[in-house]
Design a binder for these strands. Structure first.
Length: 109
DNA sequence: ATGTTGACACCGG
DNA sequence: TCCGGTGCCAACA
């Protein structure tokens, strides 16, 4: 199939992120085998409306300036915790594998 | 073909 | 801990 395009893989990866979990641009880029985290944002800006783009954020847990308000709102609705203006990546960062309760704390308020 | 931009990441002070 | 500058890759004019 022709879904091996970079944009398509990015969308597939972001779409595979379960609710309550977040992924950084760099992780998504690395997941698809690309070295351009900026490319991820560009694709989301193009067809992000078809994927849970709000589950993608920066490596330091902060959100983009223009998306901060809306993205924060959506993440809070998903159950993601915030530490000031940044997300607790240590607990909600999804590496592409199912969270193991033997090593990760999963979602525990 | 070249230069500039960008929903970023990493390092140093 | 926070702030600034630099580097990487791909797309766009």
């Amino acid at each position: 199939m022709s879904d091996d395009s970079l944009p398509q893989r990015i969308l597939a990866c972001v779409e595979s992120i379960p609710p309550g979990r977040v992924m950084t641009y760099g992780d998504v880029a690395e997941y698809i085998g690309s070295r351009a985290p900026r490319m991820v944002g560009r694709v989301l800006a193009a067809d992000g409306g078809t994927v849970p783009w709000h589950r993608v954020l920066r490596a330091d847990g902060s959100l983009a300036p223009h998306l901060y308000t809306e993205q924060r709102q959506r993440l809070l609705a998903e159950g993601v915790r915030f530490r000031g203006d940044k997300v607790e990546l240590a607990r909600f960062r999804w590496d592409g594998q199912l969270p193991d309760s033997s090593s990760a704390q999963s979602v525990k308020p």
